[in-house]
Simulated assay, not measured.
Amino acid sequence: MVQIVRKASLPSPADLPEPLAQLAAQALATSLREPRPAGFPLLFTKQWQLIEPAVAFLHEHAIQRAHTADTLRTYTEILYDWFDTLEQNDIPWHKADAVDLVAYRNRMMSQPSPHTGRAYRTTTINHRVRGVLRFYAWAVRAHWLSESALADKTRDFAVSRRYSPIRTRYAADTERSIFVLRQYEPLPRPLVSGQARELLAYLAPPYDLMARWQLYTGLRISELLRLGVDDINGRPTPLTAHHTIEITRKGRKPGYVIAPASLLDETDGYISGLRFAWLKRARRRGRAAHHPALFVNARGAPVSKNAYQRAVSRAGLACGFKATTHLLRATFACMLLARLEYLASEGAKVNPLLVVKILLGHEHIETTDRYLRAVAVDACVLKDVLDTLLAGSAEP
């Protein structure tokens, strides 16, 4: 069975016998151009042979392309499951073909997940299949393979697609693959103004302020958690209703969001009030509390992704509707897009999709188009969105 072993940190020479201490000292003194951090996943076969192409794939995406830890974990899980399936069926990875991938997909369709005991969702199956195809395409580009049936774009794997209003050259080849199951595309459904007010009122600090940031700026949760105090305190103070805040986007790309002055004033009050008090109490109790994170919890530690997601989910359940952190971002996108579409219909020279694409940090315009369709198909939501925006920014 394929094994995942997390890379450990090098031992201290003082903790080793003399013959090994010198080697440990040399290892610590060795300078590496792209070192893998402790905890980096290494995949081994059942004979404890390193699966080098899989590790090289993870290394490129995690170290060179600087993908997030969540992305690295997802790629690791996909490769682990694929190589484990190949090993159980005695199939060399470089000889896998379309028949093997179809059998892998069909197994997930017919058998429950060994981890959850539930049937695989169509999105999960497609996600894993796309991950395998992405790996083999990379293996050919990186010269781990001279060719592969799973990376051969000359074969006729294309099938007809449903109509999309956005035609773009960026559409992935795997989206047209026979390996990918047809599925209903879930459109984001934004919160209406009453739901947003109720949710914000139920959330406790600092989660209520974090939710406001997502609602007013459309930040991803990873981008929100990377905000530091210096990002807010270091801003210029022009006499305008909005301020540009420089942020680090997904994939470590530079970007920015436009935050209303009222949100920044509320954030300043949080920094000088609750955040200061929580950190002071943490230091008094002997905890380390000198980190630059903007959002900290009542113990003085940086807010974790899971804690924030749980807080939003529980608040939504208590209020009687489903709420997620991504839904807050989707609400911002739909509200902004609806407002821009209204202005464009009134004669304003603005490209609504392009503006929202930039502010959300989307790489492809078709991703932003999903929000336009979400607004278009729900007249009640559109009316509520427009009423909220046209009434001014006094309400959340």
Rank of each mutant, 00 (worst) to 15 (best):
A14Q: 14
L23P: 03
A24N: 12
Q26E: 14
L28A: 13
L28H: 11
S31Y: 02
L32T: 08
E34S: 13
E34K: 15
P35F: 14
F40I: 00
L58H: 03
H59E: 04
A66C: 07
D70I: 13
I78K: 07
L79I: 03
W82K: 00
F83L: 08
E87R: 01
E87Y: 09
N89R: 11
A96F: 00
D97G: 06
R107S: 15
M109K: 14
M109E: 08
S110K: 15
P114H: 06
T122C: 13
I125P: 02
H127G: 10
R128F: 00
R130M: 15
R134Y: 13
F135K: 02
W138R: 06
A142Y: 06
S146V: 11
D152K: 01
D152G: 05
Y163E: 14
Y170R: 14
D173Y: 10
I178Y: 08
I178R: 06
R182W: 11
R182A: 10
R182M: 11
E185M: 05
P188M: 05
Q195S: 05
Y202E: 14
L203R: 04
P205T: 15
M210V: 04
R212D: 02
W213I: 02
Y216P: 04
T217K: 01
G218Q: 00
G218R: 03
I221R: 14
L227H: 02
G228W: 07
I232W: 04
N233T: 12
R235L: 01
P238L: 04
L239M: 14
H243Y: 06
T248Y: 04
K253C: 10
P254L: 10
P254S: 05
A259N: 08
S262Y: 09
S262V: 05
L263E: 02
D265R: 13
T267M: 04
D268P: 01
D268V: 06
G269Y: 00
Y270V: 01
Y270F: 15
Y270N: 03
F276V: 11
A277H: 15
K280M: 13
R284D: 08
R285C: 10
A288N: 12
H291Y: 11
P292D: 12
N297P: 08
N297W: 01
A298W: 12
G300F: 11
P302E: 07
K305W: 09
S313W: 09
A318C: 05
C319E: 00
K322L: 10
T324K: 14
T324Y: 13
H326A: 01
F332V: 09
A333P: 10
M335F: 04
R339V: 09
A348Y: 01
V350C: 07
V355W: 06
T367K: 05
D369A: 15
R373T: 06
V377L: 07
A379T: 07
T388D: 05
L389N: 14
